[in-house]
Computed example of a mutant assay.
Amino acid sequence: MSNKKSLLAVIHAPSPNTRRLRDAVVAGASNPDISGVALTCLSPFDASPDHVMIADAIILGTTENLGYMSGALKDFFDRCYYPVLEEKQGMPYSLFIRAGHDGTGTRRGVETIVTGLRWKAVMDPLICRGDWNEDFVPQCEELGLTMAAGLEAGVF
């Protein structure tokens, strides 16, 4: 059995640009300098409570849809909330939002759920606001790298 820590990324990426953000998170979390973390990246529709139960930390990614998180991420929470509630309290997480507007409602919605789960935010949410900006890509890569490096180092 591997002694690597498990990092789960649950990311809704319905468009070419959001797939670029997902891929940047994966690239950061898979940095070759980090050898003690195993990354699993899944669509919210494919992620199950079992995936969450084996994770040591989680990265959440969503689009802003009508001022709220994507239906895909909400579906993930609907299916996983109660099965993981008791055993995954304190799990470190980070969040990125691709927001065409300001992301406020999306952030509030996700934070309400993770507060109920008693997960611990390890950094401020990354909100990629407004029109597409190439700067979003390295920001997402840094988020992935920070999560993996912090998990490997035992910071969280």
Rank of each mutant, 00 (worst) to 15 (best):
L66H: 10
M53N: 07
E86W: 14
Q139A: 15
V25H: 03
H12C: 00
L42C: 04
D23A: 02
C140R: 02
F76K: 06
T106E: 02
R22Y: 00
M53L: 14
I113L: 11
K74V: 15
S15W: 05
F77M: 10
L151S: 10
D75N: 15
W132E: 03
R22S: 01
A27T: 14
R129P: 01
S48P: 05
A99W: 08
I54G: 03
C41G: 06
I34L: 09
G61T: 11
E152L: 05
V84I: 15
A148N: 12
G144A: 09
S94T: 12
V52Q: 00
A27G: 04
G130W: 04
S35G: 15
P125T: 12
P44E: 08
E111G: 03
D75I: 09
G28A: 02
A121F: 06
S35M: 07
V137L: 06
L39R: 13
D131Y: 05
L126H: 06
N17V: 12
D135F: 07
A47T: 07
Y93S: 02
F136G: 00
F77H: 06
S70K: 11
M147Y: 08
G144N: 08
L85S: 13
A9M: 01
A72I: 14
Y82H: 11
W119G: 00
Y82V: 14
S48K: 08
D50L: 10
T115L: 08
V122M: 01
I11A: 03
G71N: 04
G100L: 08
W132G: 00
P16H: 11
H51G: 00
L60V: 10
R108K: 10
P92W: 11
P125D: 05
M69K: 13
N133M: 06
D46A: 15
G67L: 10
V25W: 00
K74D: 08
V25I: 08
I113V: 15
T106D: 03
T40E: 04
P49Y: 09
I59M: 01
Q89A: 15
G130P: 09
D56N: 14
I11R: 00
W119C: 07
G67K: 06
A9S: 11
F45T: 02
D75S: 15
G71C: 03
D23C: 01
V122W: 00
V122S: 03
R22G: 00
E152T: 09
V122L: 02
S35F: 03
L85A: 13
G90Q: 14
I54V: 13
M147Q: 10
R79A: 14
A38G: 11
L42V: 11
T40S: 12
S70L: 03
F76M: 05
S43V: 04
S35K: 15
H12G: 01
K88R: 15
V137N: 00
P44V: 02
Q139C: 01
P14A: 07
P83W: 13
G61A: 14
S70A: 14
R129H: 04
P49M: 11
N133K: 13
P49K: 09
D50V: 12
